[in-house]
Design a protein around this nucleic acid. Structure first.
Lengths: 152, 152
DNA sequence: GAAGATTGACGGTTCAATCTTT
DNA sequence: AAAGATTGAACCGTCAATCTTC
């Protein structure tokens, strides 16, 4: 890496660390029969007992709408979620956890939290907070990537 | 997010920010006819004129060997890389950039750096350095995820 | 048997195009 | 026309199994 600035390296490290976390999380969730992506949906819906539309889900998770469709197809086949009709709007669904989904969520979450705390145990609260802020800044700017690019 | 510790949130943010960066980088590289993953290979090989084995590539990029095979298949079809024979070992290849690959790398890299500097312009050098260290710590611990999990 | 590479199956993600309903 | 959702194609990534060569 010649001439790489600290900012450049730092951004690359974000991608690199996330890749590793992603791969490891796969292995973590596998015994539960779900993936990290599916857990994210479980998690969002778990705290939203009334359910939400797929559109809202994709906006919240910052993910393509079609992606949500596919994930929910699988989770529906597993009996983890239900697509309820919306009275008065036949276009949309109100997606919510099934009883099984709720049970699974409550079972996995504590375990997940514990492993994350283990991974993060080497990082002080202060460091973690600072890192969080920095990443949020980066995220905000990354959303303008295309824009920034057009200007340059 | 009830009861979420700052460490938990911080780790989730790593994944979230990386997702966004990944998606935006796709859009960035698209006009050049490559993906971020392919650029990573371009980048590693660009600084290694003598080339390297696929095994070395996958170790460096912390990626599955089969993944490297597929990426190189595509890049080879595009004429960006060459799989040269290794004298004395008919199992392995020595992968290197073609002239076209080298040209493309030299063309994309400055542009890529510039966009990254734009994205990171809101982050001070000190912040970036701290973030880098924290992420490296997390990465190191994440590699023991399975291990930590087994213990708990 | 071990190492380098490949294949096939599968999940996640995006994108463009489409369908239905509003 | 606009909004919610879906489909099909393409790519990245992993894993398990396999093939060839060492």
């Amino acid at each position: 890496m010649k001439n790489a600035s600290i900012r450049y390296e730092s951004l690359i490290q974000v991608l690199h660390t996330a890749n590793i976390l992603w791969r490891e999380s796969r292995r973590f969730f596998k015994p539960y029969g779900i993936s990290e992506a599916q857990f994210n949906i479980l998690h969002v819906l778990g705290e939203q007992p009334h359910g939400m539309s797929q559109r809202e889900l994709s906006d919240l998770l910052v993910v393509d709408r079609s992606n949500v469709t596919l994930l929910l197809d699988k989770m529906s086949a597993q009996g983890l979620i239900k697509r309820n009709d919306v009275p008065g709007d036949r276009r949309a669904y109100r997606v919510a956890l099934s009883k099984e989904g709720m049970t699974l969520w409550k079972k996995v979450l504590p375990h997940y939290r514990k492993v994350i705390e283990s991974i993060m145990s080497c990082v002080s609260e202060k460091e973690a907070g600072q890192c969080l802020l920095t990443l949020q800044e980066i995220e905000k700017n990354a959303l303008n990537w295309t824009e920034l690019d057009a200007k340059s």
